[in-house]
Nucleic acid binder design. Structure first.
Length: 889
RNA sequence: GGGUGGUUAGCUCAGUUGGUAGAGCAUCGGCCUUACAAGCCGAGGGCCGGGGGUUCGAGCCCCUCACCACCCACCA
């Protein structure tokens, strides 16, 4: 940022800051890699799961985008060439629905406009509102390459779709056939099996008598759909069913009609269910369809594609099927065919887009013969494509094993038109990429294109390579395919992931992604799925307005790996905003203590001061953990580790410890400035992938960043060898324990923090004495002391409070009245705790099996701890004894 | 019917090769200690769902039961 300001305002104001950095990244094309250039660290690529153009950013997107952004920004820091392709999905049915709804408000239907005008209308809508979701992706701070943005219906992708369709057709993997499909009466289209959602419904079971041809007896069938009886072409019973053996091969008269239908036998029939006799309606039930094929039954369609009864339904023609159901049942009852009705609950399919009840419907559709494709896609896991977490692998296998042919034609207008033409003269089918001028069979020039469009997921399945320019051999494909990882929620594992695998392997001869990371579903605080109808939606944009994008991103990252779903509530986001505030204020403190210029570099290996060496050592541990966590998709670990370092180590201890250095001036101050500057810089780099905005803002304000003001372009800080600092770190921790001990005494005895204490520390040994002496000043400040005696032989005054920390005796002389009884009780409590632990460990060590079989270092550690506890207990007991005497006086 | 995940502090959840448990929020007490009250310092709180097994040792591995979610298939 050009106008790097050296002073940060008192509070962090996300709104301004975020807008500026978004603009900065965009203007600088920070995230557009050069596909021609080679980098030694290699390439890293992700294609965004394209949100629907009709869509609005929801929490699922927010999580999905955040995790991908963390991966991409981190990969850039590691020096990789990163491509993150953005784009949107044309979302056939969903988008068409939106525009149709608008037309309806104008009192029109799509048929009033006609196909071409309607599609123009949808494009116009897309131009006007498509920017909505794009703006929302930008709001999240996603570091995508907008110069490579794609839309599943743009020209390049359409070309890819046509090529794939034609090739699969020529290979015999796409066919056209009569089949029973899931039909949505409202959307007027076929749906794939997985686009149908099942939900229980309360209904009735009607028991209906079908009399034998000769009237000698009747067969009672059970159905939930009496209105489909006009399409019955048989009654089926189990071949072994003694009740009905005599009926097999005979004919029954279909009530309300004069048709005779055969009684057939098939083991498919469940003898236990209903009456054990099943009416077979091949045109209106999936299982009946298969039965009908097997037994060569007639398919009689009685419900039209708008859900109304047709001419075959006699008196009920024109009625909606639900109404016909009641009327048919009434007629049956009237004429004495209805034997009984029972209450019944079954499950019924609904359209996943509009939730209308789906009707099994017989029609001519296009199918992909998926078996061969699925086999290859199955075999590629896990060797070529790894699913993370691995537990999803089995689900993937199960689905691939049970897969059925995929119905890809949709009877809507918005989508990829099927590249198939029928010759008006000879009636033959022509399948090719471009519209034919002439029929290759009969040379006629009048051909009609198939009116259907392709399932949206057909084009989505090509997304990883179609976005990179396939079928051209582009440098993007060469450099960035296969992509590194696909990040998505499990709910589209089948819709999308499995199909990308099939298409990628078939057309690119290579998996579309090396890893597939399945993240959680975002739910509400009660664990319910967020949905508009439930009214429990937390809108990410509201959260961004209220708490800033970084707070939202950090929250989502911190909860990312906590199982299969995230229960999100506003309080959590609010909680992490406190962390942003902490970072902001710590940075302000740093800026107050740094000069205009970057501090003069020091040899960090020679920096004295255990606190510096301790924090540098902790920083190295953080760097290592951060790298490992992100590499393994342990996003929550990465976030938690950063949180703890920044708050509990850097802020709570280090910043307090350098305050005396800053006041001292001279070389001490210079050293503290340099270490502070170094640690803060590196911490900002580590935080940046998760919270890019606030870190960029702070970074630009730091001295020494004038020529590298774009934090997003900074490399991951190289590792520093701090193994020599181990001892310093341990000594620092001992001093911290002493300070905490004093604070605890102060708190428990209700000594005002404003009262400065005179402290005596009796060090455990000479090394401890030296370490404490070295940190004398820090202890004085942090424990709020007026004097400090460090002496193993110092006399404890009669009136005092005490503790043992890290082997050192902490003695706080007290003036005035002391509650001896309270102090004895306090020490007793502590002794009891120690005693319990020591007893447990001693017990273990007394067990010969343990000493023999457990690893030596574990045993040694226990022994050391027992000795330490024994020592501490002895010292505490002596102190306790003094109080007891005081008590008696 | 088939499968998956879960059951750990009041709440929401971590717990990476087995070494008897952690965080945030909430609660309680004390502090405006000049970066931060959106803060600081301290405290309390858990037979890790029940039962059994393997092991010197189990929140973690095996068996079993219970309850809660979810997914797939079927539902005349």
């Amino acid at each position: 940022m050009s106008d790097a300001r050296k002073e940060l305002p008192k509070g962090y104001e996300p709104e301004n800051v975020e807008a500026r950095w978004r603009a900065f990244w965009e203007e600088n094309k920070s995230f557009s890699p050069n596909a021609e250039a080679l980098t030694p660290q290699g390439a890293y690529s992700i294609v965004i799961p394209p949100p629907n153009v009709t869509g609005n950013l929801h929490m699922g997107h927010a999580l999905n985008l955040t995790l991908q952004d963390v991966l991409c920004r981190h990969a850039r820091q590691l020096g990789k060439q990163v491509l993150w392709v953005p784009g949107e999905d044309h979302a056939g049915i969903a988008t068409q629905n939106v525009v149709e709804r608008r037309l309806k408000e104008e009192g029109k239907s799509r048929h009033d406009l006609g196909r071409e005008a309607f599609i123009e209308r949808v494009w116009a809508w897309k131009e006007e509102y498509g920017d909505n979701i794009r703006r929302q992706i930008k709001a999240m701070g996603a570091s995508v390459d907008w110069s490579r943005e794609r839309f599943t219906l743009d020209e390049g992708l359409s070309r890819a779709v046509r090529k794939v369709f034609v090739q699969l057709y020529n290979e015999g993997l796409i066919y056209k056939g009569l089949y029973i499909v899931n039909w949505c009466n409202r959307c007027h289209t076929a749906l794939a099996d997985d686009e149908v959602e099942h939900a229980p419904q309360k209904t009735r079971l009607w028991l209906i008598n079908y009399p034998l041809e000769d009237g000698s007896a009747s067969l009672t069938i059970a159905t939930t759909r009496p209105e489909t009886m006009f399409g019955d072409s048989a009654v089926a019973v189990h071949p072994e069913d003694e009740r009905y053996k005599a009926f097999i091969g005979k004919k029954v008269r279909l009530p309300l009609t004069d048709r005779l239908i055969p009684v057939i036998a098939d083991a498919y029939v469940d003898r236990e269910f209903g009456t054990g006799a099943l009416k077979v309606t091949p045109a209106h039930d999936h299982n009946d369809w298969h039965l009908g094929r097997k037994h060569n039954l007639e398919c009689i369609q009685v419900i039209d594609d708008d859900g109304r009864m047709n001419g075959k339904a006699g008196a009920f023609v024109g009625l909606p099927k639900e109404e016909a159901r009641e009327k048919t049942a009434a007629a049956l009852e009237e004429q004495g065919f209805l034997k009984a009705t029972q209450d019944y609950e079954n499950s019924v399919g609904h359209c996943y887009r509009c939730h209308t009840i789906v009707e099994p419907h017989m029609s001519v559709q296009w199918f992909v013969s998926v078996k061969p494709l699925a086999e290859a896609a199955r075999a590629a896991v896990p060797e070529k494509m790894r699913i993370v977490p691995e537990s999803w692998t089995k689900t993937y296998y199960n689905w691939m094993d049970g897969i059925r042919d995929w119905c890809i034609s949709r009877q809507i207008w918005w989508g990829h038109r099927i590249p198939a033409w029928t010759c008006d003269s000879c009636g033959k089918l022509v399948v090719q990429e471009e519209a034919p001028d002439i029929c290759p069979h009969c040379k006629s020039t009048t051909l009609t294109q198939d009116p259907d469009v392709l399932d949206t997921w057909f084009s989505s399945a090509l997304w990883p390579f179609s976005t990179m320019g396939w079928p051209d051999e582009t440098s993007e494909l060469k450099r960035f395919y296969p992509t590194s990882v696909l990040v998505t929620a499990f709910d589209i594992l089948f819709f999308w992931v499995a199909r990308m695998m099939m298409m990628g392997l078939h057309f690119m001869k290579e998996v579309p992604f090396r890893d597939c990371y399945i993240h959680a579903l975002v739910r509400d605080a009660q664990g319910k799925k967020m949905s508009k109808s439930t009214g429990n939606v937390i809108n990410p944009l509201d959260m961004i307005d209220r708490y800033g994008t970084d707070s939202l991103r950090f929250t989502l990252t911190a909860f990312a790996a906590m199982g299969r779903d995230i229960r999100l509530s506003e309080e959590r986001i609010e909680g992490y905003r406190h962390f942003m505030n902490k970072i902001w204020n710590a940075s302000r403190f740093a800026l107050m203590n740094l000069d205009e210029q970057a501090p003069a570099p020091l040899d960090l290996g020679a920096v004295s001061g255990p606190h510096h060496r301790w924090i540098l050592h902790r920083l190295e541990a953080l760097k290592a953990e951060q790298k490992a966590a992100i590499a393994e998709y342990r996003f929550n670990d990465a976030a938690q580790t950063l949180y703890k370092f920044v708050w509990n180590e850097f802020c709570d201890w280090y910043l307090e410890l350098i305050k005396p250095d800053m006041q001292a001036g001279g070389a001490r101050k210079a050293a503290a400035q340099y270490v502070l500057w170094t640690v803060l810089r590196e911490a900002l780099i580590l935080l940046h992938p998760i919270i890019p905005f606030i870190t960029s803002e702070v970074w630009a304000a730091l001295p020494g960043t004038e020529h590298e003001s774009n934090l997003a372009a900074m490399p991951f800080p190289p590792a520093r060898d701090t193994s020599a600092y181990m001892d310093d770190a341990a000594r620092m921790e001992m001093v911290q324990a002493a300070i905490v001990a004093v604070r605890t005494i102060r708190a428990e005895l209700n000594i005002a923090p404003s009262l400065k204490l005179a402290l005596i520390i009796r060090p455990a040994d000479e090394a401890a004495r030296a370490a404490i002496e070295e940190q004398r000043e820090a202890i004085m400040v942090l424990a709020r002391l007026e004097s400090l005696i460090i002496d193993a032989s110092a006399e404890a005054p009669r009136v005092c409070a005490s503790d043992v920390a890290g082997g050192n005796e902490i003695i706080v002389p007290l003036s005035g009245a002391v509650d001896f009884a309270a102090e004895v009780a306090r020490l007793d409590k502590e002794l009891l705790k120690m005693d319990k632990e020591r007893a447990m460990l001693s017990g273990k060590l007394a067990n010969e099996n343990y000493v023999q079989k457990a690893p030596q270092d574990v045993v040694a550690r226990d022994r050391a701890r027992v000795a330490e506890l024994g020592d501490a207990e002895k010292k505490l007991q002596a102190l306790r004894e003094r109080f007891r005497q005081g008590l008696q006086e």
